[in-house]
Design a protein around this nucleic acid. Sequence first.
DNA 1: GTCGCGACGTTCGCGTTCTGTAAGATCCGG
DNA 2: CCGGATCTTACAGAACGCGAACGTCGCGAC
Lengths: 226, 226
Amino acid sequence: MVDDDPTVSDVVRRYLEQDGCRVRLAADGLAALAAVDAEVPDLVVLDLMLGGVNGLDVCRRLRADQPGLPVVMLTALGEESDRVLGLEMGADDYVTKPFSPRELVLRVRSVLRRTAPAAPPRPALLRDGELVADTGRRTAELDGRPLALTVREFDLLEFLMRHPARAFSRAELLDRVWGWQFGDQSTVTVHVRRLREKIEPDPAAPRRLLTVWGVGYRYEPCATSS
Amino acid sequence: MVDDDPTVSDVVRRYLEQDGCRVRLAADGLAALAAVDAEVPDLVVLDLMLGGVNGLDVCRRLRADQPGLPVVMLTALGEESDRVLGLEMGADDYVTKPFSPRELVLRVRSVLRRTAPAAPPRPALLRDGELVADTGRRTAELDGRPLALTVREFDLLEFLMRHPARAFSRAELLDRVWGWQFGDQSTVTVHVRRLREKIEPDPAAPRRLLTVWGVGYRYEPCATSS
DNA sequence: GTCGCGACGTTCGCGTTCTGTAAGATCCGG
DNA sequence: CCGGATCTTACAGAACGCGAACGTCGCGAC
């Protein structure tokens, strides 16, 4: 919990602890970074307005040092632009002051539930017929021949193979693969196309990476075709 | 909104509607379950103390019928044990009486914001004899042969199959499938016709997607069960 | 420091598909 | 038999997906 106002920190701490959390307090950005370095927490509640210092910088540093560490932002600024800025920065959620401590607890719980199961992305061997993706080594091969996938392409393939036979909208893919809450959806289109070029024998007539018209895309396992 | 006290219900309804919610009232547990069955809401506000009846039972039934349906509990008991009980029961939040309507609205909004992104994609396999609709992959098949349904057609079919044996007016379908509060009702007519062309062996003599003269349409399950 | 390369996000044009509306034909209830 | 509701067909505009090309950024080589 990073906040320079002891009154706020104390209340929040009490509520969080009552909810079963272990809480560490930090009064400023440097202390926060040091604390995180000393013991990586499950989640950080970060006040954007740290007396003079820009909380966004702290957030950026946190994201750089500990990618994947959930951050819930706390801000007096309820403006849309700040929200966008915060989410761009990688915050998983945000609460605007004045807030009810209960609400903060709910958000924290929600984010934890959301990220906890996804946090340990255990290396797995995703196999679908002749297409095999090794998330540990971040390599993939088709018909035994290695595929030269880029980062995004691999992430996209991994996500789709982990959720087979489900249609996802471009927005949803943008959110869950790119981590964006907004953005140009054609980005997804283009990456799907590039990925098809590599995993589909005939990219114009895809057998695995299917288009769902008016919705988005879906990965259909090739092996167990019903 | 489930509460046996009209005074409370009315106030809460006004506040929620002012916040942009569409509200349905139910005075007791049975009415609540019936209402949810008739039209699955985005969220239920449930008073635990329903004159004599235990609201927890209602909650349990709700959870069984509609897993994932958010429930905000309303209770005069502020005891920790009850809170724990409520949350164990699956409530997403709870508010203790006496409460400020504003606080309830905030809680509702918060829970909706939290669950909304996860709620819509609730994959289900809707089956009726030889007609199967998979809402997860957004595909449907008849006699094992895939159907080429468009977005609207699928949405319409999904909605009707989720509410079988119930007549809906064109206006209601326009509202709940298209999301329009007004508009040309012939739109529904045409889409029903197009859908019939695909799911009915003889579109002129429909067996599932029936016309209810002077009212609208109704989906009649083909399988002679239930 | 500069150059070249690959990855990535964006933009544009084109062909296809979907969709709402209109208009005439048909059917149903009284 | 009539009036209104429903069905059927046709069509044009809009939406959509695709393919290609472009600009930017970061990185490594020289």
